[in-house]
């Protein structure tokens, strides 16, 4: 069981070091899809490896060790992907960057010009959502697919739980 935890720890540190020392310099790893797959494939791979270990081992500690490893991997990947995505750009960061780049106060009206960020994001996101099979083009309009309707229902449930009417 200790060997499972040790191998998992070495693997996790290696996964991060390979990114920091090599992969982050590659243009492909500046794309959201690639960076997501780097973590998703790792998580699925670790889960598959642990499933094999579980099926072969009679040690009763292997099961909680596997759960511990997967939970830590999930936290590492979620934190990494959130920071990557947040620092890539968005309204809040664009506002802070623009305002912080000037010495004094900034006219709010000049910051409202950042709406072009949203227009660019929206057109990119429409294509991403279509690639994921959540929406589809119908003539001049977009509509939800059946998978998209399920996702929208999940969104509504979470919105209701946190008492948040959808806003931008």
């Amino acid at each position: 069981m200790n060997s499972v935890l040790a191998i998992a720890a070495i693997y996790g540190v290696g996964h991060l070091l390979v990114y920091v020392s090599v992969l982050r310099r590659l243009p492909a790893f500046r794309r959201e899809r690639v960076i997501f797959l780097y973590h998703a494939i790792s998580f699925v791979g670790v889960a598959a490896a642990l499933a094999v270990v579980l099926s072969l081992s009679v040690d009763r500690d292997v099961r909680p060790a596997a759960a511990l490893v997967l939970a830590v991997h999930a936290m590492y990947s979620l934190t990494f992907l959130e920071l990557w995505s947040l620092s890539e750009g968005g309204y809040s960061l664009a506002i802070l960057r623009r305002a912080a780049s000037r010495p004094g106060a900034v006219e709010v009206s000049s910051l409202l010009g950042l709406e072009t960020v949203g227009l660019r994001k929206r057109s990119v996101r429409l294509q991403h959502l279509a690639d994921l099979g959540l929406i589809e083009r119908l003539g001049a309009t977009w509509r939800l697919t059946s998978r998209g309707r399920a996702a929208a229902a999940a969104v509504k449930t979470v919105s209701w739980l946190v008492g948040a009417p959808r806003c931008g």
């Binding site: 057109s123 996101r125 977009w142 509509r143 939800l144 806003c167």
Partner: peptide, 25 residues
């Protein structure tokens, strides 16, 4: 992660807008 995404994501805004029916850009 899920509820901050629901509250602030542009993609989620598109999904919820389209839940009411097809829309043009």
């Amino acid at each position: 992660f899920a509820f901050t995404l629901v509250v602030s994501s542009v993609s989620v805004a598109v999904l919820t807008a389209l839940a009411g029916g097809p829309l043009s850009e």
